[in-house]
Nucleic acid binder design. Sequence first.
DNA 1: AGCCACACTTAGCAGCTGATAA
DNA 2: TTATCAGCTGCTAAGTGTGGCT
Length: 556
Amino acid sequence: FLGSGRWEEEKYEDGVKWKFLEHNGPYFPPEYQPLPDNVRFYYDGKEVKLSLAAEEVALFFAQMLDHDYTTKNVFRENFFKDWRKEMTHEERSLIKDLDKCDFGEIHAMHKAKVEARKNMSKEEKLALKEANQKIVDEFGFCMLDHHKERIGNFKIEPPGLFRGRGEHPKQGMLKKRIQPEDVIINCSKESRIPVPPAGHHWKEVRHDNTVTWLASWTENIQGSIKYIMLNANSKLKKYEVARKLKSCVDNTVTKQVGELQGHLFHFFALIFVSFDPKQLALRAGNEKEEGETADTVGCCSLRVEHITLHEQLDGSECVVEFDFLGKDSIRYYNKVPVIKKGCVGLFPACHCPSRSYFSQTSMLNKHLSSLMPGLTAKVFRTYNASITLQQQLKELTNKSDNVAEKLLSYNRANRAVAILCNHQRAPPKTFEQSMVNLQTKIEARKEQLSLAKSELKQAKKEAKSKGSSDPKLLVERKKAAVKRCEEQLLKMEVQATDREENKQIALGTSKLNYLDPRISVAWCKNMEVPVEKIYNKSQRDKFAWAIDMTEADFEF
DNA sequence: AGCCACACTTAGCAGCTGATAA
DNA sequence: TTATCAGCTGCTAAGTGTGGCT
């Protein structure tokens, strides 16, 4: 029964995702608690008692006062506009200038609350934890077919100020409180229908087993739909599609260049032909509505100003320099030499200012899926990421290394992928300090080591002169101490290297979403590294299928 | 072909927590 | 026992891709 069917997906016929679904509905955040009387708001120096609705929104802003957002003009303007909508007539005619608003006391109260929470007694913390656990127990699980499953996000998003990333035109707008009347419930007809909070009703209860969500509502900033869903589980199928691409790369995709030139923008040809894994892993780049989101682009939406063509750069011929903001407004900067000379002729097109040269992802995907079933633009990222990990692991790890060194190599391979996929992070606020701390520890350990060494020498000397069995034992002990010290020192030095190299790189995203876990599991088996060293508990759960099925000889 | 609605995946960050060192 | 900090989890924004409609 451990055979091939065990990790099968798509249990049901066309599009049916479940046969039975039962849950308790989403959890709603607590109602707003009015400010105590001693916490006041001032306008133009004078105390103003705000209405409940206006006060709540004022608190949202006051809570963010330490954040960069509140210094940004767009944020402030959007906030102020939406805040005024929540005010009463009188408030609105009085409060006309955000700069004259004094949120000082509200801000101070908020900070005191955070502080108090931090300083809670053990008992209080435990009580809070238990209360939270009760909520999880009641709302955090559902019955999906015959299994009890953990729900990924069972809480309705609380109201607040919209925190769009980058230069988001809607940052600071009021994200409204969601009521049960806004929420659609999805579950089995024959299940216990979730009960709405007292005095409320659901917007709708439906029974659609072709979708996986349990509840949904429409959010007021972009008008998009938000869902309550299970945690996405990684799919074997997705990696198999990417893996198939490996054999397709030469005989299918690259041969299509000529055809691509015909009816798709030339730039795809360039990108998808020059896809030596060490090169590009751009996102597809769907069109976006202008003014609704931050101006970010991907492969298909790149504009002329994002690309510079160099006929000669850093010793390579025909190099494309990319500089643009991608998803989450993360900057992508890269200089990529073209590997297929046939593409050179395509470059002049990049200088054409017309957007029409840049085809759409739907066109691209249509073409790609005709080349290979299941092939879409994002499969290239999965393929590139996984093949790069495999190559890097092969290149970097030695069987004779110790575990710490092997793990450094693994992280370096993972890092190569993260760089390829442009997974960046802001350097942690405490980064410099923690590096200094680690360095200090290393120095201390070094001293300890030299001390241990001289003690060993001394012990040896004494053992020689006395020759008794007792000092010999001492020599062994000292030897062990030196060895232990050396190991710890090495471990710390490796850790320092790893951390320094990882300053601005986020490994988690590629690990979770792009790297075929079978590559990592096979590597662990080959290198005799316990799988817990590279996957934590939740990652092991997510990749249980790979851990279970993968042999040491797996090749992506 | 272009659009939009919808469903689902991928993403960085903030705050929490538990391991570790002092 | 307490302070610290790295790693983890939860959160929710921001992508991708499909399919139906005009």
